[in-house]
């Protein structure tokens, strides 16, 4: 538990020392929103929904890519002797979730500023965002850990990550379409259940398999 906190502290210190990485992600969110807004001028609610989640998806890929790549093997060897792999992956998961929630909030604010706020059911939208962001961050953290072992990590991240994320993304989009009043669906609870189930499945797989990945 202690080591998780120490590692989290390390992640945040590193992040604030090199502000360009997280700043780059924020700039990315802003410019994507701006480009789509310029292209569509008037953004319809259907596009709003898709765009919101695509921004988060691609921002997550960019932000998480460096979570394992930036650590060279010497430092990993050092960490390996100090703490358990579980502490490493849990701290990465928490850190990435916090970053992704920040990105989600920022993307939402930017979109609202430029394209208006179409959210009808704020509670459902908030819940979907949290559970969805958790799913995306768990999946991409684990995929980043796998991709960091190969050459050409950025391509690997996309190839490995996108098929895995599709069921999560489809469920999220359906739920948020409900929250935006685009569709009327009675199966909201079962969809939330699916999303939570997928989150739990991915989380247990990540915790179970990461120790095998980490040793090098």
């Amino acid at each position: 538990m202690n080591s998780i906190l120490v590692l989290l502290h390390k992640e945040f210190t590193l992040e604030f020392r090199q502000k360009y990485a997280i700043g780059g992600v924020f700039l990315y969110v802003f410019s994507t929103v701006f480009i789509v807004y310029s292209a569509f001028i008037q953004i319809p609610t259907t596009v709003w929904n898709v765009q919101f989640w695509l921004i988060i998806l691609f921002a997550a890929v960019n932000a998480f890519l460096k979570s394992f790549v930036s650590e060279n093997s010497d430092k990993q060897l050092y960490l390996y002797q100090l703490v358990s792999p579980l502490a490493v992956i849990i701290s990465k998961l928490i850190y990435n979730l916090l970053i992704l929630l920040m990105i989600t909030g920022l993307a939402f604010l930017t979109l609202v500023l430029l394209a208006g706020n179409p959210v009808r059911d704020a509670g459902l939208f908030f819940l979907t965002s949290i559970v969805g962001a958790a799913g995306i961050s768990i999946a991409f953290t684990f995929i980043a850990a796998i991709a960091s072992k190969g050459n050409n990590q950025a391509t690997l991240m996309a190839i490995l990550g996108f098929p895995v994320i599709i069921p999560i993304l489809l469920t999220i989009m359906k739920l948020s379409a409900n929250a935006l009043g685009l569709i009327q669906d009675t199966a909201i609870l079962s969809d939330l259940g699916i999303l939570l189930g997928l989150d739990a499945l991915l989380l247990s797989l990540t915790l179970l398999l990461f120790p095998f990945l980490w040793k090098d």
């Binding site: 684990f142 796998i146 072992k149 895995v164 499945l201 797989l205 398999l209 095998f212």
Partner: peptide
């Protein structure tokens, strides 16, 4: 090793 890990992940996914 990495592909064994991914294979388990793929089956569960």
């Amino acid at each position: 090793r990495v592909s064994a890990v991914y294979n388990l992940f793929a089956f569960m996914a």
